[in-house]
Design a protein around this nucleic acid. Sequence first.
RNA 1: GCCGAAGUGGCGGAAUUGGUAGACGCACACGACUCAAAAUCGUGCGGGAGCAAUCCCAUGAGAGUUCGAGUCUCUCCUUCGGCACCA
Length: 831
Amino acid sequence: MKQDKKKYNPQAIEKKWAKRWVEEKTFSPDLEKAKNPYYALFMFPYPSAEGLHIGNFYAFTCVDVMAKYKKLRGFDVFEPVGWDAFGIHSENYALKIGETPGKMLERTIANFSEQIKSAGLSCDWEKEINTTSPEYYKWTQWIFIQLFARGLAYQKESYLNWCPSCKTVLADEQIEGGTCERCKSAPEKRKMKQWFFKITAYAERLLEGLEKMDWSEITKSAQRNWIGKSEGANIKFKVVDSVEEFEIFTTRPDTLFGCTYCVLSPEHDLTQKIVSKEQRLKVEEYIKKAGAKSDLERKENKEKTGVFSGAYAINPVNQEKVPIWIADYVLAGYGFGAIMAVPAHDERDWEFAQKFNLPIKYVILLDDKKKRMLDDRNKENADSWILQLDKNEKKWWWKENYCYTEDGALFNSGGYNGLSSQEARKKIVQWLEKNNLGKKETNYKLRDWCISRQRYWGPPIPIIYCEKCGTVAVPEKDLPVKLPELEIGWEPSGDGRGPLAKVENFMATNCPKCGGKAQREADVTDNFLDSAWYFFRYISSMNKEKIFDEKLAKKWFPIDLYVGGNEHAVLHLMYTRFITMAFHDLGLIDFDDPFKKFRANGMILKDGKKMSKSKGNVINPEEYREKVGYDALKSYILFLGPLGEDRSFSDRGILGTKNWAEKVYNLLEKVKDTEEKKAVLQKLHKTIQGVEMDMKNQKYNTAIAKLMEMTNLLTKEEKISKSVFEKFVIISAVFLPALAEEIWERLGHNESIFDQKWPEYDSSLASEEKIELVVQINGKVRDKIIADADVNEEIAKKLAITSAKIEKYIIGKDIKKIIFVKGKLINLVVK
RNA sequence: GCCGAAGUGGCGGAAUUGGUAGACGCACACGACUCAAAAUCGUGCGGGAGCAAUCCCAUGAGAGUUCGAGUCUCUCCUUCGGCACCA
């Protein structure tokens, strides 16, 4: 019986402390008075009915260990928690189980919060938020009207992604690999009038900001690709025998002389105006067909199609007359939806010209090196080059049947012949600008954020349509526009309007300007808007006057550490940056980017495979609490490898951290009144130093390894002094919080271990007195000699050449050179 | 195709950033305890040669720089992530 009491019982210990931490508000800082703020944030969860999963657990823990470490280092740590509960995800699930989302969430949030509370995280439950509460979404709507007032929220009609299953439009960011991010069905193209946020106005700032931020490279690169900056020029083309003209965007103005035709997208405004009588029927038929194609069809079938418009344009640089074609390989949404085609030096134009027998004109010469490179790539055609000798330099161009996009030297280009592509780009654009025929321009792939959703479960868009006054924002004093609590009729209708459109007492209102009868907007905002600003609300979750307190924001922002899944790289993370920049421009804050440091946590694989319900290899955290306890589970996840990489979880492997926790627990018995051995003290101080360094670099895995080493050393000791053990327990508390807290109490302390000070290491103890001096001959290790740590070159040399093992390598040879690395090695270069 | 990250024992991964490759853990083997098993503790554990001391090979492949390369440079291969008819 007594035996049992002494046994490590993680479940009981963890339960006890998790409860006490919440009750005693151990981790609730005073935001106003805090002197040394540290804001640690994990992506707030969507409270799914399945409950906490291992991915949540991983991301939360990555933040949590840093929070605990910083708290021990004397910071006022704020690690808030809340619920991202609006949105299609919740609503679809509610539809599936036939319950209203509101009722369902009451239950799932209660469950989820119990789970997080029992996980022993240092969350501040005082500041909990929920995006579906009117106190929260009042401010989501407030953001909308602020952006509306500044022209950053606007309505426009355009072709949008319509998800037939979710029955709503989606933002471009929510189409992943051509399908709906939520339900994986193929979206249709629909022309609709919708609300947009002008994120494109921030394209350059979003891109530039990336340079300064401490974010995972993988995330930054995803954002860069999504923003898709390209520099080039706009060029005007006049239409022959017409007053019309159109502009094109190109990144290769140096190839302007090689333009042999132009292409307009089927949606281009000009097509109707310029089409010739003979071609009209064909053109109209083509436009109709192209319009019916979904993005997915386009993606799958990249075969070029198109039709001649019957009209011609004038190349501004050489007055050549070139045909204008209509083709859907030119996209309406990018640039002007019109291009100059240079088939010799653009692969898409090349393909099109081949198919429709359009002329090809080479204007770029390549040097020998580039020619050889292309020859290697394209061996079967390697004999079609034409040689041109230019100032004794060999230059080449292709005779036929090939297209190359490399930069080179210009020819067939009038006064620009001989210039490099780079120079020619500058000169040609200068000439165009001087003659008002074009200008330098930068384009981005990023498009404005469509935020209307034809759904029920979101904040209603705070807009009123008045016959007299037009589109009017709901005044701030009337916020929030409450989402009516519907028992029935909240399902998406699919008719292009949100279900609120049918709720008469919601829709009917008065115009805030003229007081006359008016209608509300029936759509709600995108769920990603709720989550684009939640971290601002945490610091003022109770504030009724303001979205957040500016003084507190100044103190607590930018956020010190943010961790979450990289699947949000271009969704959530881009939107948060945009909203933060907008806040900056509203004068609310003085910074542009909300997260100083972001780390993407990788995925957890089970035995090397992706987890999925169908495979039955899903890791349920609660199951492992039963088996090994949360302290061991969390440590194991972190121990598996460096942050940001995928990691393979195995049932056997987890025993490693379980054993570790148990060993630490068992050390308690050895605490005696005793003098500490020097070797133990040295290891302790080295461990403190090492853990500090690893935490600084967020190398949790090696920090744990160092603590394990210390544990192994202590396990071998008969007696451990209390002072050494206490220090060791404090530094272990970062990874084994409940266990450490329990030990701390048993050592006779009343206050929480997390209110203790991190022990300072003594650098004289942390560094070695004796080292193993490595002796190399010509860079190969030949001997290791124990020497004083501060041994100098002279003595090291003596030690080396008098070593018996070294003798045979230097006998009869000259020592040409000696390389000495202090505290490490001496290398004798002999011949 | 373009951009980014990565490739080290049977496995997850270390390596103070150019200085002892394989820390720590898992698995495995042997030993101690036990009537026995589990648990625990101890020892070993990249490959090859040798009784041994020791020597050779080895960080995806190949070259290079260097006294010295897992780390830097170039070329190539593979895997993963992002973008993709974006002019």
